[in-house]
Write a protein that binds this DNA or RNA. Sequence first.
RNA 1: GGUCCUGUAGCUCAACUGGAUAGAGCAACUGCCUUCUAAGCAGUAGGUUUCAGGUUCGAGUCCUGACAGGAUCACCA
Length: 596
Amino acid sequence: MDIQKALTNTLASAFHDLFDQKVDPDSLLLQATRKEFEGTYTFVMFPFLKLTKSSPEASGEKIGNYLLKHLSEVSAFNVVKGFLNISLSPAYWIRLFEELYLKKEIGSFPQKESRVMVEYSSPNTNKPLHLGHLRNNFLGFSIARILKAYGYEVIKANLVNDRGIHICKSMVAYSKLGNGETPETAGIKGDHLVGKYYVLFDKEYKRQVRELMDAGMQEEGAKKAAPWMEEAQQMLVDWEAGDPETVGLWKKLNGWVYQGFEATYRQMGVDFDQYYYESDTYLLGKDIVSEGLEKGVFFKKENGSVWADLSEEGLDEKLILRADGTSVYMTQDMGTADLKYRDHQIDKSVYVVGNEQDYHFEVLFKIMRKLGRPYANGLYHLSYGMVDLPSGKMKSREGTVVDADDLMAEMINTAREHTQELGKIEGFSLEEAEALYEILGLGALKYFLLKVDPKKRMLFNPQESIEFQGNTGPFIQYTHARIAAILRKAAQIELDYSAARCRNYLSLETVEQSLIFQLNDYSNKIAAAAEELSPALIAQYLFDLAKEYNRFYAELPIFSETQAEEQAFRVALSAQVAKTIKSGMGLLGIDVPQKM
RNA sequence: GGUCCUGUAGCUCAACUGGAUAGAGCAACUGCCUUCUAAGCAGUAGGUUUCAGGUUCGAGUCCUGACAGGAUCACCA
């Protein structure tokens, strides 16, 4: 039953019967009626006054009456200025509710014959994850779930940047100052340990640069001539040559980092189906260079470097291969794009990468299109904005990064304090209580990072950002826990709230109507979130739903002063809201508790 | 300097893609726990949507131009 379609079809025939005008039903748009007016859907008359040749009010009246006569679901209408507000009958609402209530699965779409890869996280292995990575990981994981719900087969991929000069920096510092330290002996996570040496490298390197400059060297020269930098560069060369000692050290440090990352990912609640490592893929793409030269997509300069000329597309020339024949970032990414396609025959590929790489991906996608890749039109860059601190941008060198592990631990701790303050853990075992703190702390954090439009950059204030009231994860989780309590009580008194029992309840309150409307809207939101790659739409939806439910909860009694069918319906409605919240929060990667 | 993104209440964010009197949350203030969880609900206050033009029945949304913030424009990744 698609009421919007029925309405637009009837509107079109109204134009035909009343005004002798042919109108395409698909061109007629309905919008949700604003809260302060009576009705569910609103049809705006203004664009059609030329067809009706009468005033907005008169046209609205005529069409409203026509709807009333020809569509049984329409129970009333009113016209305010040029807006025709349409009300639907209680019978319609109850029927719609029953339809939703009886569905086994909520918010699921028919399986598409289409496979999509979502690449996210993609960390460097020289330092631990920070707040920016949290936004990336939560976004990627959530988008993967949303696309899956929308019917795609989804592959979550992590392209680990495990080689390069940055790793070598940590390696140099460790070989100088490490003294055989390990995560075990140091008592810290492997990624943090390696990060420590990365910072130590930077410190010493800066000192060396300053020393050289004091001795009269220019800054640029000093930066290259600093002994540790020269060693790091040499290490990179050795690594590429496969020098056993260098590779051994590299493996050791990376192994520690992976152990650390794994713990962080587990705490974040994200996972991957496929890992790619740049140490395996960094040489890929070179054969595409020759292919591109043959096809005339690329051209060679006198010194032997290879370029793509994108000036016709409004961009400029872009380097594809260095004069010495070594590859650049773009070369690798072309190769990896092919690799992903070869491995999984994907139709779409989503790259969850920060917006500082907008230009890079614009170029990459254009090149793949020019090369005639079959998957080129399915490439998307989910470009998200940076997370700023009140002090401005996070800078690892200035020690202003917010560490991911620390932040999550802090969140869980705050949840613990807050819950204990409210005295809400009576009857909880210790394990149950700890599990709850984790659900709430991470829920607050994830919701906070996901509720904002991904492409906008956002502000994170450690002191104030994470609340447990208002538009927050815990608010929605709380709503779920409240409903769970109702369902426990219903079970306890053995209340029958089957669909058949709700059917006779026809004196719906407006809150109840609007809840049914919102429940029905869930699948539309999933579709929109999937198409726009925006979990924020789900977050916003869940907040609105929870808010509306809490209004219902405060205004209407359930177990007392109610008729049998009224009671059954309200419990069933609550159950459906809880189900939707659980499902929607699941799309955000957030758990919901039964009690809190 | 070129290109791209952003600018909405004191703060953090919405606004169904051009529709009605621009909405939430936080912070402030006022009510509501002897009924299903007060991490809640109801209310008050808070706006020249950065500015100036333009397009039309109608603009926060579209176009032009300023202004402000950010990103990017490497034989870096």
